[in-house]
Design a protein around this nucleic acid. Structure first.
Lengths: 209, 209
DNA sequence: ATCAATCTGTGAAAAGTTTCACAGATAAAA
DNA sequence: TTTTATCTGTGAAACTTTTCACAGATTGAT
């Protein structure tokens, strides 16, 4: 008896969760209207989202932050560790890895991959590193469910395929190329600066007239 | 007499544009169903999107790629140069800058900012660099409309404010923190790994049962 | 020249999402 | 204690977006 949440709702809840975890040390409660200033959404919509959770505690000053964090996490099953891996240990890959160490809790990055065996020997990281041709096996063996791709554009499609064959369920792709897939057992999120630039520039133009 | 496109449509068109520019050297035509494999969308939806453009040329084998690129660009006014800037010249910032040089056409990154004057003197880039405290003035002076933020988390909010005061219309934020704004003259897109991880892991879980 | 296969194009229906209006609740001030 | 201001919670309405069904068009094969 799990009532489903819509995809936009899930995304907004993830953003809100992120904000709350940033704010938890600074304040106790927060109102829906203040929260809306952090998101591209209205207070109405956030309230409606929260109404789909259970056990939310609020008062005239707003929502109890700790309680709301707990409710969102329970509903979304966040906090149950999922194994993740990263492919491509160049500038972006290493930036993500380092930033990750300290910040992403609940996600265990358990493997790094790179095509250059040379690089694998030189790098010093907290996680085990493997050559890229082992992706499929390692993913299967370690039950890795999420992958981050930060390899050069011309390798991204092939690397994605190996992850998919190994059985990952989600991919975040930072390579400047859009990855294609035939299956729909995997959700691919492309993070592409060119696309974002074009989108931003299109909608700001539209808003302004 | 400009018929407005919805935000989801604009975003999909930006993604499609990106794909087409990748594919233009490899093939002449593409069908809506093949395109849909690159996006998290159906062929129906893409066809409907294209029906909102004007001058689209198609045949039984699909859409003419060059023509479609042209139609999307015209409708979205993409290709008209907008000035952009980047703040934070650490690992991510420099990665973006380098990746950018060769790839983002139509956007002139005309300024880089960093808090460390020391760093500004050491770095060798193709674009002029300025200290972070000059953001507001330089943005105004150079008519910069888009900003990329890649500074440490605790500085991002303040840097964003300076860009906004200077008059930018859109911000892409890579700092691992959600930026807040009171005004709605600026569109902020936060690209946050933690949020993406949580979202991915929530929706793949949901899909699988 | 005809047929079969496979595209696109689009109005209408369906589904999904957001907004609104207002009732109810609570905290702080008078 | 009463009032006032300011929250949340939510059903219903409004709006938006996607899906569908099928007509029309084009290509290639026979």
């Amino acid at each position: 008896m799990r009532s489903e949440l819509s995809e936009p709702t899930v995304y907004r809840l993830c953003v809100v969760l992120r904000i709350l975890e940033e704010l938890r040390s600074k304040q106790i409660v927060i109102s829906s209207s203040e929260l809306s200033k952090y998101t591209n959404t209205t207070a109405y919509t956030l309230r409606k989202d929260f109404s789909l959770l259970s056990g939310v505690a609020s008062s005239k000053s707003g929502y109890d932050i700790e309680n709301l964090i707990f409710c969102i996490k329970s509903k979304l099953d966040i906090g149950i560790a999922k194994y993740a891996a990263i492919a491509g240990l160049g500038r972006i890959g290493m930036a993500i890895l380092n930033y990750t160490d300290s910040r992403i809790k609940g996600y265990d990055i358990v493997a790094g991959f790179d095509a250059s065996v040379n690089k694998l020997e030189t790098l010093h990281t907290d996680i085990p590193l493997y050559p890229a041709y082992d992706i499929e096996d390692i993913v299967r063996e370690l039950k890795i469910k999420l992958a981050v791709i930060a390899v050069p554009a011309d390798k991204a499609q092939e690397i994605a395929l190996r992850f998919i064959k190994g059985g990952v369920e989600g991919i975040i792709n930072f390579a400047p190329v859009i990855i294609k897939t035939d299956v729909d057992t995997v959700y691919i999120k492309n993070i592409d600066l060119v696309t974002e630039f074009n989108f931003l520039s299109s909608i700001v133009k539209t808003k302004g007239e």
